[in-house]
Nucleic acid binder design. Structure first.
Lengths: 196, 196, 196, 196
DNA sequence: CATGAATGAGCCTTCATTCAT
DNA sequence: TATGAATGAAGGCTCATTCAT
């Protein structure tokens, strides 16, 4: 009858944090359940009380990572003002976010790779892309309707914009000396805005 | 007429082919040397006559994959005509190539992930990006000098162009139903060309 | 009263015991970790909870064997009486010990061979010999000072004595039909005592 | 019909020399047939034309090594003079031989270890010891009969002498800094001669 | 005779997962 | 709930041996 507090949610969170860190550092396959346990200050056996398998843990981390990335995009919706300004603002904000996420990049690409192999992962990735387009396209559509943008195909334009952002991230990741991510994303955004 | 023709080059190629396939299908870490041997019609032990370790094999495959991707880009250099036309031609050709490479995409992203972890892989990736920029930027520069393009920053524009291509590939990979890669790459190219 | 008693020392001992047996029977190189596990009633993987590598296990076994051999010698120090009597007593006791150690002889010689190749092993062996001399020489010196022995070079005499013992062990090991170890060690001891 | 010279004996010898060297350097188990082939300037496959298995090669090397050691002892028989002098001469000659054989010591102890496990090896070792005693005992017996030595048990005395020699070799091998082999063998011989 | 090429069998080591406490 | 202990299942790599040429 003692009021044992349910620590289960706290523990789950604790494990996810630890796993995220270890996955990012060592890579998903190289990360051992033991490592994650150690990072979480728990024994590896304890992890199995909260996650049935390593794969289940991977799935949760993956969802978590993409949810985190989407959170940034969702602000697009909430802001007001001229569409071009909102897109510029979005780019600016993205730049800041990406700097902070740099350590998660290897993990991101691992998930990309996984997404092309495991159907479970594929779903998450597909949703991520769809959500992204679904957020960006209406904004561009709105710009067209308001006469702020030319009458382009909103969906296609949104995809191109997203592609430019993702692609810049990738080039920066592998050639940080050659690609100034901040300048490049803003530059790419301007280039595209000129045609819109 | 020598009694024993040197099969070593042939075998090496045979193994690389098999490894490429198995890596693409199962993933680099999940791929067992035994699988690769089976795919190549050789015993596991035989692989070690041609590659010292699994890592060595991975390295060769990685270099091979990026070399293959660069080969497409290099045609940019060789063609003549208006710069915009050449870029359009390049996009068209890329589209065809990418369709053929679809099965290699998971592997590509795995290598991207690896590139952020292992320095050996990083080097290959860095060179790949650098080479890409080095091929594209002078072309744009040429366009500027010939008065075919506006006086943009050639390097930055090249990076944006490359980013758009890479990014489109990625979005298509994860949402093929939503993203029509062929149309999208050509569309993105047009969009950028308008601003150049 | 703790719910889980620490079995780690017990297991370690259990594994050492098993390894000692398997090494002695099959030889260090031929002994498989699996064999040792089976002998210990444990799985192969469990061994690695207690010993990082097979080499580490070998090292412990080696040290254990030589420590065991030295234990016999150390009684030399503790006993009282005439030096010659103490040496005779030592020989008698050694004989009993050696009979019991017979099954470990192959292992002993393997360690001797290893001692000439691996520096880690060499150290253990060197210490063993040094310790042996260090125990025997002072005793002889004492005998000299007490006038019980002639004024020989104590260290050299100790080495000769040790050599005779080691050598008899070896000849007995390979020609047990021809060499009566018990009689021979006592005989050799008498022969040397006469000159001392 | 061309008078192809039979190189088979030459090749066999060449291989034995190579194997002896490689076994001594790397150890019998660690020595690979490939290593031996390389040392002999032959392909490893060629070794199998001359030796059915690695074990067969080991056997030959073992016999060769012990035969070589016995050759030294056999001079005992041939010399003339006072028995004590002949024994001293033998010790002197042995010392020189042992210095030359130092690199073979690890191999020697490996064979000792093997001799306690494999019956084939055991035979060779047993013969070696027996031969040694058979050479030494009659000499001592002769000394007794000539009145040069006391009426000891010739066989036992021979064994003790052999043991002292073998044992000194062993102690020197492991503690060369502490044991001056040359001086020690001569010293041990003198000590024993005093009692004989 | 000689060997380049190939492999079956094996061994060390790792790790996700289970379970008794 | 937590964990120390244990393990089945793998996987990379090695090597003695075989064989076609």
């Amino acid at each position: 009858m003692s009021p044992k507090p349910d620590v289960s949610e706290e523990r789950t969170e604790q494990i996810i944090e630890a796993a995220l860190k270890v996955f990012a550092e060592r890579g998903v396959e190289k990360a051992r359940m033991e490592d994650i346990g150690a990072e979480a200050g728990l024994s590896k056996a304890t992890l199995y009380l909260y996650f049935k398998t390593k794969d289940a843990l991977i799935g949760v981390i993956m969802r978590r990572l993409f949810a985190y990335m989407l959170r940034g995009f969702q602000t697009l919706d909430a802001t007001e003002g001229l569409v071009k300004e909102r897109l510029r603002g979005f780019a600016t904000q993205l730049v800041a976010e990406l700097h902070r996420m740099r350590s998660l990049l290897p993990l991101l690409y691992e998930f990309y790779a996984m997404g092309l192999r495991k159907s479970a992962a594929r779903e998450v990735l597909g949703e991520f892309v769809a959500e992204f387009i679904t957020l960006l396209a209406p904004l561009i559509q709105q710009g067209i309707e308001r006469g702020e943008l030319r009458a382009v195909d909103a969906e296609k334009a949104a995809i191109t914009l997203g592609a430019m952002l993702e692609g810049t991230l990738l080039l920066w990741a592998f050639a940080p000396d050659r690609v100034d991510m901040e300048a490049q994303i803003l530059y790419g955004m301007e280039l595209l805005l000129e045609s819109l």
